[in-house]
Structure formats: structure tokens, C-alpha cells
Design a protein around this nucleic acid. Sequence first.
DNA 1: AAAGATACTACGACAGACATAGTACGACTA
DNA 2: TAGTCGTACTATGTCTGTCGTAGTATCTTT
Lengths: 114, 114
Amino acid sequence: MVEISSDVIRGYNDTMILYILRQAPSYGYEISKQIKQLSDGKYIIKETTLYSAFTRMEKNGYIESFTAAPEADGSGKRRTYYRITGIGQQYYNEKCEEWNLTKEVVEHFITADK
Amino acid sequence: MVEISSDVIRGYNDTMILYILRQAPSYGYEISKQIKQLSDGKYIIKETTLYSAFTRMEKNGYIESFTAAPEADGSGKRRTYYRITGIGQQYYNEKCEEWNLTKEVVEHFITADK
DNA sequence: AAAGATACTACGACAGACATAGTACGACTA
DNA sequence: TAGTCGTACTATGTCTGTCGTAGTATCTTT
């Protein structure tokens, strides 16, 4: 069974997370479920990868965190939510460009036939 | 200026090298020139990356080395050539499949528009 | 003779992914 | 009400491929 290359993913986990945060602020568990869903179950991000990405990206100014209760009435345990910043948006755009270039290059070395 | 993601390339340098060795045995310097050429000058593999890939892949049984003189008459300094093995061929095929899957997944998170 | 291209080797640093483990709370279930 | 499951994290350390830096040595061209 073929698996996702974690070497390719390396560096694109951030991009995936930002893609989701572009739509709305979210938090760890939900983001991981969305990544799974958007990839048709083909990619499941590891918890440690996810949370270390949060730390890194917040330090880099790509995202901002805030805590909030899950329900509108303020009930339930407060979670850490993240929202994308302007710098994060810009970084996301650059990563998309980078991806397109990288893909183009790599594909010169990939044969379709078996 | 957008640059190739060395995080994506991580793990696909081997694939690129194997792609070239599938055609004919070759050696470091020539392979690096071919990678540059095949990628339209967009990707230049670092020397250390290249040579450490050789070591790793030989250890994994993907390639075999032999030394030979550059000229048919035996003149010139002997170089280390590499040829792809059956296992290496198989590994290459798997990497191609993996690439296609990974690409598919990543592209769900990439937006074409700016 | 000097410079530049070729053909490497050695060593160490770095960073992202990941394994492992543990904490804590809420909801549902027996 | 005790136990289990799902949720929501944090901490710590290991691994691996890439890459920076540096050095050696031969060959070719000017």
C-alpha cells in the first residue's frame, strides 16, 4: 500500500493548516479532522506534528491564538483557537507558488508508466 | 523569487538520481548536470546532498558502484560510477506511485488563484 | 604556471516529523 | 457511580535528509 510521503508533507503541513484557517479560525482537533476529510481520508496528520506546527507558526507570526468556549453560551471547556494573520496569508500564497514550481520540477523525474 | 522547496525535494532527490540511472550508469558530476538540465535549470542539487544520497542508496541496495576510467582507452582519472539495481528500480516505481498520491492530496490545499 | 572545472570526502548543524507518554476534562454507558 | 471513550492538549527526545563549510587532488585550458 502506497503511503503519503512524509518528506513531501514536511513543510506542507503548515500550508494545509493555513488553508483551513483561511476559511475560519479553528483548533487542533477540528483541523485534523478537516485535513483527513479534505484528503479523502488519505492523509491523517499526527497530533505532535499538528501542535508543533501551531507553536512554530505562531512564533513566525503566521497565526494567532485565542481561547474560547466551544458553545456560544460559554459552556464547555475552553479551547485554543487559531486564526491566520496577514503574514500567514502571504506565506500561504508563497507556498502555493512554491508548490507549483516544485511540482513541475519533480514531475520531470516521474514516469507515468509502470 | 520562488524557490524549490527543499522539504519537498527531501526524499525525492533519490528519485531524481534513480531516474537518471535508469537510463545508464553515471557518476556524481554528470548526474548533477543532468538534474539541472532536466529541470530547465530550476533545480541544482547540492554536492553534499548528492554524494550522501549515493552512500545511503548504496547501503539500501538501490544502486551499485564501480570505478572506471572516463575514456574507452583507459586514460584519465578513474571515477566512481553508479548503476541502478533491481531493488532500486522497484523503489523508484514505488516513489512514483507515492508521488502521485501525495501530489493529489497536497493539491486539495493549494489554491490556484492569488 | 595559473586558473578553472572536475571529482570527490569529512564533519557538523539544523529543522520538521514522529514515537512515546502522560495529563485532564466531558459525555455516555453499565 | 465507576469505567470507558472521545476530546484537547503538553513534554521530551530521536531520527533523517539537507545543507553549510572546508579541504584535497587531478585534469584541462590558457
